[in-house]
């Protein structure tokens, strides 16, 4: 029996890890969408976290928890650098800038022989396991849920509903927007570190545009009313293609279709309810 269970876990280990990692990525997208901005750089932030942490553990034998901190800090710093000028402009600029950053990073990895160049990084220790991934996910989910129900959460909602009005009401727009982007990049970076430390190999072409759009489809499918929506979206879209094998080939078609249909017909996503309505005092 334990042998069968062992085989089952061995067979589905990657899928189980992917469920947790993708949920984290969906949460990172949620933070930006929750203030009415769109970042197409979540995959790039993830890649940066993956590379930063993998270089530390594989080349310098730095302990994994320390590498994890770097995986959060490096993308956060980059997000600060991109966000500071672009978030003052309309949302379109952030979206385009984050696409640009993804491409610049890709070219950077390709030309950086120390990090393996096009061959990618090999031999990353498999440090991240079930406890790490789902522990961090639980903490992040609880944290975001607490924030969503707090003053900060209400301010974020106000910005999403009407930026100008929120500004007039005294919400400090630049600080909120920049903070959201920085936090989102840090979360994506941690997800990237987990991704690198469960598969032992990362390559420069894995964090491109398709990955960014897939992360967006997680968040949109679940809905951004609460942090639980994006996680649900990530779980559904990660597990479904594994269960229904034929869906695998049409993964990108389905992700694209979901984004189109949700934006036009179902702006709330699968879980449209806001957290404050659930059990909050009236």
């Amino acid at each position: 029996m334990t042998h069968a269970l062992d085989n089952f876990l061995f067979t589905y280990q990657s899928l189980i890890y992917a469920l947790g990692i993708n949920s984290l990525l969906a949460l990172s997208m949620y933070v930006v969408l929750a203030i009415g901005q769109l970042s197409l750089g979540q995959a790039a932030f993830m890649g940066l976290g993956a590379y930063a942490s993998a270089l530390l553990t594989a080349k310098f034998a730095i302990p994994f928890p320390l590498a994890l901190i770097a995986a959060a800090a490096v993308p956060a710093l980059l997000a600060f650098v991109i966000g500071a000028p672009t978030l003052r402009l309309s949302g379109v600029y952030l979206a385009i800038a984050t696409i640009g950053v993804g491409e610049v990073l890709r070219i950077f990895y390709l030309n950086w022989d120390y990090a393996g160049g096009a061959l990618g990084l090999n031999g990353i220790p498999e440090e991240a396991g079930f406890v790490w991934i789902f522990g961090v996910l639980a903490v992040a989910l609880a944290g975001f849920a607490a924030i969503a129900r707090s003053r900060i959460g209400r301010a974020m909602e106000a910005i999403r509903a009407d930026e100008a009005a929120a500004g007039v009401m005294g919400v400090n727009l630049p600080v909120y927007k920049l903070a959201a982007l920085v936090v989102s990049a840090a979360v994506a970076g941690v997800a990237g570190a987990f991704n690198a430390h469960v598969s032992s190999f990362i390559g420069p072409n894995e964090y491109g545009f398709d990955a960014a759009v897939t992360i967006l489809s997680f968040a949109l499918l679940g809905g951004i009313g609460s942090p639980f929506g994006p996680v649900l979206g990530a779980l559904v879209l990660t597990a479904l293609p594994e269960v229904l094998r034929p869906l695998h080939d049409y993964r990108l078609v389905i992700n694209g279709l979901i984004i189109v249909c949700v934006v036009i017909f179902l702006p709330g996503g699968l879980l449209p309810w806001r957290l404050s309505r659930i059990g909050a005092p009236r």
Partner: peptide, 29 residues
């Protein structure tokens, strides 16, 4: 539909993003 609903500008960005993925995948298939 988005223009008529006066949806925020990022909605149109997202909808065309999804459509791009869809159209390219179909074209590739």
């Amino acid at each position: 539909p988005l223009r008529r609903a006066k949806a925020p500008e990022l909605s149109s960005l997202m909808v065309t993003l999804g459509a791009t993925l869809l159209l390219y995948s179909l074209m590739t298939a």
